[in-house]
């Protein structure tokens, strides 16, 4: 159980700032994800935590120990690489017990530890197989076992599920969560897949352009995005530009919308953004309260079988609304309808 802290960390490559004043205090024993698009700096941050790169500035701490200048091989972090990085010249159990081999532990002990871990990842009979006898999913698990063999202080996984097919990915997500809960180890997963981040983690760290955008639980991130980037990157949303008023209303395109603005954006003066999620919206032919609706035109109807996605527009804004599948909608593309707004919605600084 290790608590990871980063204080004012910078990482520069030449004139390029890969990470800018990163401050993080991550709880121990939790499942944490670094979420961000390609090139956001999440992998740089990850390599910094692992000790594979060193920070240009700032301090990295494991509990109370300053590990900023400590090389990777002394940090005792377990890593799972995107392509697994299993040693091709070693078989399964030799891969798992590689760290113990470096410590010159007797063979029997290494073998026993490897068997123990294979038990843990539910692949008890493959100890003597070579790597090319394994499927992608099995390699993934062996990589996990290898990373856990040394009882690491931190468990780091870089895009662990990206190489698996959709079905297997979902299955492995659950297994990883179970494993993390059983071991209670502080775990960091790097991913660009917001769905994965939302379903797996206790804490999500959203990163873009080398800066931490938001840290919070998946629900917080989804419901109360603190920047337009987060709102856009996590889930689908429509951001309305306007001014949030003291009384909770939102002034938008000459209308005063009665949506009950919540959030920390400044009131009355500076422009803010109102974040609307598909599940907060509904389409009606006629609304009772004009201050609670926006007139829209239906652009596109897509029946996905499980649900129907309706795209409606107002001026430059596009809204996604989800309707249950299986019965008639009562409207079609091109119709003009009213978009019903929720009682409460999140506002943020523009």
């Amino acid at each position: 159980m290790t608590n990871l802290t980063l204080e004012n960390v910078w990482k520069r490559f030449g004139s390029f700032d890969a990470l800018k004043h990163v401050n993080l205090d991550l709880p121990s024993g939790k499942m944490i994800t670094f979420l961000g698009p390609s090139g956001s700096g999440k992998s740089t941050l990850f390599r910094l935590v692992a000790g594979l790169d060193s920070a240009s500035e700032g301090v990295v701490r494991f509990d109370d120990t300053d590990v900023t200048r400590m090389p990777a091989h002394q940090r005792n972090v377990g890593m799972v690489f995107q392509n697994y990085a299993l040693f091709p010249h070693l078989n399964v159990w030799e891969n798992i017990s590689y760290g113990l081999m470096l410590q010159r532990r007797p063979k029997a002990e290494r073998r026993a530890r490897a068997e123990e871990l294979l038990e843990l990842i539910k692949l008890p009979h493959i100890a003597d197989r070579t790597l090319n006898q394994l499927s992608g999913g099995q390699r993934q698990r062996v990589a996990i076992a290898r990373a856990l063999a040394m009882e690491p202080r931190l468990f780091l996984l870089d895009e662990p599920l990206s190489a698996l097919d959709a079905k297997l990915r979902e299955h492995m997500q659950n297994e990883l969560c179970d494993l993390q809960q059983t071991l209670g180890i502080t775990t960091i997963v790097v991913t660009h897949d917001q769905r994965e981040a939302m379903t797996m983690s206790d804490v999500v760290v959203v990163i873009d352009h080398g800066e931490i955008q938001q840290v919070g639980t998946p629900l917080e991130i989804y419901r109360k995005p603190s920047t337009p980037f987060v709102a856009d990157f996590v889930g689908t949303s429509t951001l309305l530009e306007g001014i949030a008023r003291q009384d909770g209303t939102f002034e938008f395109e000459g209308r005063r919308l009665n949506v009950g603005c919540i959030g920390e954006a400044e009131r009355d003066h500076t422009p803010s953004l109102l974040c609307l999620r598909p599940e907060q919206l509904a389409l009606r032919t006629q609304s009772d309260d004009p201050s609670h609706a926006i007139p829209v035109e239906v652009r596109l109807i897509r029946d996905l079988g499980s649900e129907i996605e309706v795209t409606a527009s107002f001026g430059k804004y596009e809204f996604l609304v989800k309707e249950p599948s299986g019965h008639s909608l009562g409207y079609s593309e091109g119709d003009r309808l009213d978009l019903l707004l929720p009682d409460h919605a999140h506002v943020m600084r523009a």
């Binding site: 490559f13 890969a18 390609s38 999440k42 740089t44």
Partner: peptide, 13 residues
């Protein structure tokens, strides 16, 4: 992470 993964090794080198 195309930017980083290409620049990390060269920078280290």
């Amino acid at each position: 992470m195309t930017v980083q993964s290409t620049s990390v090794p060269t920078a280290a080198k």
